[in-house]
Amino acid sequence: MKIAKPQYKIKKLTRGDIAFAAIVLTLMILFAASYLFMFIWVILNSFRVIANYNAEPMAIFNFEGVSLSNLFDNYKQVFEYTVKFTAYVGGKRQHVTIGLIDMFGNSLTQIVIAVACGLVFPPAVGYVISKYNFKGKRLIELAVVMTMCIPTIGTTASVLTFYDKLGIMNTWWTVVLSRSGGLGFGVLLYGNYFASIPKEYVESAKLDGAGNLCAYLSIMLPQALPILTAQGILTVITNWNDYMTSFLYLKNNPTVAYGINALSNQFSNAYPVVFAALFMTSAVTLLLFACFNKKIMSSMSAGGIKG
């Protein structure tokens, strides 16, 4: 770029700039307002009396009939709600009746599995690729790119029939298998990060007699703690929000997100109950986001997701 004579005078905003900023800011306000309005709408309606809501859906400030004694009635209904699912486990038909507490438990189990898999496999593969030379390294890198580029949706049918044949359909093993793939985006993320850490750290630990595993666990992994935390939180959020795992593999152990959708069908004439459920579900992830917002964003930029 040609650099003109330096004028050393910081220019004020031009008219074009102001127009540009005004247009974009208006649009941003519209989007932000719609998200905020959605929240207010959900929260306020979740406390309203059902009959009152059905009569006047728009009057979100109309709390007629709401008193301290029945303030949490809609929330109580969410907790008392149960749903029946039928699933085949190992060829046997299984009926389950599940309430919200069980769904919370299921979501937690899925989160624990996903976080454990995500903390074990991708960082280790990323470390090995960035710090060791070995036969077949190119192949592994190729596999990582392949996993990221080729659309996988078509294999869903094959994966499901594979699980059928193994007899693990509708068991937690499906979650373990679907989450434990180590080759993927995470490898690039951790690989880039570990590549930026000098090798001398590990070398000196090895001179002191530490083995490879020990050096990795005690020297390298702690260095990646910011990325590990951010990735861990992102995994918690995505798995808390996850609908498809229950839909495809785990009908008998549905997560909260799956259960809420089933609930909404049952209460299609009593929206305030649905609103209560929606508020509870999203409050969890919003709280996490509010607490760790900075950490997630900074590690995204530090990790250098560039290409």
């Binding site: 959020i237 929000n241 996850d242 809420i260 959708n261 929606l278 579900t281 992830t285």
Partner: peptide, 20 residues
């Protein structure tokens, strides 16, 4: 403010957004 509010949909479940 915008950098928090505009990121809200990424952390909320698609189920919740769809139901809303």
């Amino acid at each position: 403010f915008f950098s928090v509010v505009l990121f809200i949909p990424t952390v909320i479940s698609a189920v919740v957004l769809c139901l809303c």
